[in-house]
Design a protein around this nucleic acid. Structure first.
Length: 263
DNA sequence: ATGGTAGCGTTGCTA
């Protein structure tokens, strides 16, 4: 099974790039974040035309929104929410065969890394704390569960272009990294991408739009992740970060992350 | 130290 996660940053604006991604990578399961469309306007027919017969989505007008496109039957879906908000960041589907796939979009957290000053940062920390407690209670190592999405946190020094310069930048602050590690340890989850790419190797999935030339200095961060439960770790076969997608016409600021599993 | 771009949907908010 080939799973791809991608923060698409508007599914309607980038429906042609979605077709391009499908043609190039042919995923069996595609997790999308920031679809930025309310449910009645979701491009369901276009997704079906690509061969995704099973589609779950939970969107809203203008912001956020997540979707799972699948060639395998989706037997059940759950729309989850955290911090008493209904902001469409978490969609869980059970696929035929029993594997559960969770599509996640963790809050970005604003600019100032101080929860006392910046309510968005406080929300991000609360979101991760709540979801950690939930996974600790709900998921066991022997369960077959995949988490995929934009976690908006780059945990390793090699997950950012400059560890030193990003220590005080939201996405790589010590408090966020510690919370992400605590979340991962709660089951524990296996980082499916770092399972194949050694930790000393720089690896990014996002490059800011606010740069004249994203390739010139390669100031990226690894914000998008795929985690699996220990039960699925032996099934991991390969991973790929589709860096070339950042050079597509009118690209998302995130690129697709692929994981192949023998399931 | 600062400001830079993109998307949504119309004016400022979010990233």
């Amino acid at each position: 099974m080939r799973l791809v996660t991608w923060n698409i940053n508007s599914i309607r604006l980038r429906i042609d790039l979605l077709r391009q991604l499908d043609a190039v990578m042919a995923p069996d399961v595609l997790c999308l974040q920031e679809i930025k469309v309310d449910d009645p306007l979701f491009p369901l027919a276009e997704c079906r035309a690509m061969g995704f017969d099973h589609v779950a989505f939970h969107g809203m007008k203008g912001y956020n929104g997540v979707a799972v496109l699948s060639r395998r039957p989706i037997e059940a879906e759950r729309r989850l929410s955290w911090c008493d908000r209904d902001d469409r960041r978490h969609l869980a589907v059970r696929l035929a065969g029993g594997v559960e796939v969770h599509c996640l979009y963790v809050p970005a957290g604003g600019d100032i890394p101080d929860p006392d000053i910046n309510a968005k940062f406080a929300h991000k920390l609360d979101f991760v704390r709540q979801i950690t407690d939930w996974y600790a209670a709900e998921v066991r190592p022997e369960d077959k569960v995949i988490l995929a999405g934009d976690f908006n946190i780059a945990p390793l020094p090699t997950d950012v272009w400059s560890h030193r310069q990003l220590l005080s930048v939201v996405s790589h602050t010590p408090v966020e990294v510690e919370l992400l590690n605590r979340w991962q340890a709660a089951v524990p989850f296996v980082d499916a991408v770092r399972h194949f790419v050694p930790p000393e190797e720089k690896l990014f999935t996002w490059w800011s739009y606010r740069s004249a030339d994203w390739q010139a200095n390669d100031r990226g961060r690894r914000l998008d992740h795929v985690w699996v439960t220990p039960a699925l770790a032996p099934a991991l076969r390969a991973t790929l970060v589709a860096r070339e997608a950042r050079s597509w016409l009118r690209p998302s600021d995130h690129v697709p992350v692929m994981v192949d599993l023998d399931i």
